[in-house]
Amino acid sequence: MTTNKKRALFILRISFLFTTDNSHYVKLYRLYKFKINTLNLTNNLTDFPKNVTIFQLGGLYISTYVKNDFTVSSNKNYLDVELIYNYLHDEAYWSKGIPLRLVEKSIQNSICFGVFAGDPEKGKSKQVGFGRIITDSSTFAYLADVFILNEFRGLDLGKSLVQTMINCPSIREVRRILLATKDAHGLYKQYDFQAVKDKNLFMDINQKDIYNKLS
């Protein structure tokens, strides 16, 4: 076994960040898309956790296939920025009117996850969902801009996306993970999110018309 393959296996064994089912398989890539190894997790690998997800760790990208030929990937190279912008600008209640440059800047400065119909690594895919994490990777993380396109809802893709995001290795040690939602409380409760009990605990500056001023 080559050194690269041993390193990839070692990372998987110490990560314990696995959250779909073991009928899926994981592909590991170097930052420059050099293929290291493909692990088929359908076998009885008792030394691996039961479930598997995707994340980005250092120079490695890890992609996990989810059911019905959909893929979740943390590789920013696969993101359809125009699709993300169109949704956030035109449809998302929390960001309508956001300028393209701010969407691009937010992607650049976040850990991002795309949901795809097909396999983006093979070039035959369509992005159908997105989410990003804002974090210092030490004490705090915020889940933002999480969405699945309307025509692809009802396939549990939102669950796969959120599950993948909260198991990202960059936020494994943070003390608090926050998010804001108007209508998806049921989804997030499945992953241990709870309403803030003490409403006096948090304060915010909410510039609701900021995008109108910038346009």
Score class of each variant (00 low, 15 high):
N212V: 00
F10D: 09
N77T: 12
H185C: 06
E173P: 00
Y211M: 06
S138P: 00
L201V: 01
N40I: 09
S170F: 07
D90W: 03
D183M: 10
Y188D: 10
F10Q: 04
L102R: 04
K67C: 00
V196N: 09
D90M: 09
L179M: 04
N68Q: 07
E151C: 01
E104I: 13
L178D: 03
Y78D: 08
N44M: 10
K105Q: 14
K189E: 15
I210Q: 02
V128Q: 05
F140R: 13
S95V: 08
I11C: 06
K6Y: 06
G186E: 13
G186K: 08
K124R: 02
A92Y: 14
K96T: 09
Y85I: 03
L39E: 09
N37A: 14
E104P: 03
H24V: 02
L41Q: 05
Y61R: 06
D183H: 14
D47H: 14
M1S: 12
K189L: 07
R153L: 11
N75Q: 09
Y29D: 04
T38N: 03
L9P: 07
L161E: 05
I98K: 13
Y78L: 04
F10C: 00
Q108M: 08
N68M: 08
E82P: 00
L57E: 02
K124P: 00
N75R: 11
L17I: 08
I62Y: 15
L9I: 15
G158M: 09
Y78F: 15
L17A: 12
I134D: 01
K105F: 12
S23E: 03
D209P: 00
S170M: 07
T38S: 11
L12T: 12
Y29G: 01
I84R: 09
S73A: 03
T164V: 10
A117M: 01
K124H: 01
T164G: 15
